[in-house]
Design a binder for these strands. Structure first.
Length: 290
DNA sequence: CACTTGACCTGTCCGC
DNA sequence: TGCGGACAGGTCAAGT
């Protein structure tokens, strides 16, 4: 579930919390989650000071003073939560924390810093991963080589978006939006939200869209991603930010998870949930027609 | 080749 | 209440 706005929210949180801290200990249990076949963890991780926290698409990159980096993909249920040793609060705490004491049964990796604060990598479904690798190798991994442009960068114009999408002109616009090699960071929530915003049916073939459509879709996508970052991302089930707090975007969502409710543009029309590109897809049947 | 489907996992929810 | 099955959605491998 973490998409660009969620991962960006985590990045901003960690950027405030981690740089300057030095790793004293690393605990990990699940071999698929961490670390990596060929890296000496003690050598490259223990004693390393965190320098910066970056993001590319849905991937987080924690840069270390050892010239190694922790590269993290949260996939669907991953969480990256920082806890200072002094603070203990669980679900129901007034600060809107979604999760309780850590580690819990979904904790895959625990990093302990020299000041006794901790960073927990939780992942209920074990799809996510954390890799440790030389920083110079990060741009060379397959995903980085193939991933498309960042939609919130200045050079991501509507024409740039159109040209990327048209590479896959026979497929549905929804499948194209979800393809990370086309545009970086868009997932199911923001694909549905932006297509509703642009009044485009998700099953529309890319090649049948005109420049007007691409222009409107571009604005809808950029607007929805920007708004979601402002609201701290979307918490549907598992997602929390670097402090364990929920995101608030879904309160502002127009269609996602709103099947059975009225379309904001059509008080008498119900949003319905269909399947497009193998994914649950929410549309207003009035606004979005094939 | 271009595109679609299945696998990876676990927890939750629905219907019988 | 118990239980099987569908579903959740990011990405890559396998299939059409």
């Amino acid at each position: 579930m973490p998409e660009l706005p969620e991962v960006e929210t985590v990045r901003r949180g960690l950027r405030e919390l981690l740089p300057g801290r030095t790793i004293a200990k690393a605990e990990y249990s699940h071999s698929k989650s961490f670390p990596n076949a060929s890296v000496d963890v003690d050598q490259s991780l223990i004693g390393a000071t965190i320098m910066d926290v970056r993001r590319r698409a849905k991937v987080l990159i924690i840069e270390l003073s050892t010239n190694y980096s922790l590269v993290i993909h949260l996939k669907m249920t991953g969480q990256l939560v920082f806890r200072s040793h002094k603070v203990r609060f669980g679900a129901g705490h007034p600060n809107d924390s979604l999760i309780g004491d850590l580690p819990d049964r979904s904790t895959r990796v625990t990093l302990t810093f020299t000041d006794h604060s901790k960073l927990f990598f939780n992942d209920q479904r074990k799809f996510g991963w954390m890799r440790l690798m030389p920083s110079t190798e990060v741009p060379n991994i397959d995903f980085m080589q193939r991933v498309g442009p960042e939609p919130l960068e200045a050079d991501f114009t509507w024409k740039a978006m159109r040209d990327r999408l048209l590479v896959h002109r026979k497929t549905s616009i929804k499948a194209a939006l979800l393809d990370q090699t086309v545009i970086a960071g868009v997932g199911n929530i923001y694909a549905d939200e932006s297509l509703w915003g642009a009044k485009i049916h998700p099953a529309t073939q890319v090649q049948s869209l005109g420049d007007r459509d691409f222009m409107v879709l571009h604005k809808a996508l950029v607007d929805v991603l920007t708004l979601s970052i402002e609201k701290g991302g979307s918490t549907d089930r598992n997602y929390v930010d670097a402090e364990g707090k929920r995101g608030n975007y879904l309160r502002f969502a127009n269609v996602f998870r709103r099947d059975g409710q009225a379309c904001p543009r059509h008080p008498n029309i119900m949003i319905v949930k269909i399947k497009v590109a193998g994914r649950g897809t929410h549309i207003c049947p009035q606004c979005q027609q094939l």
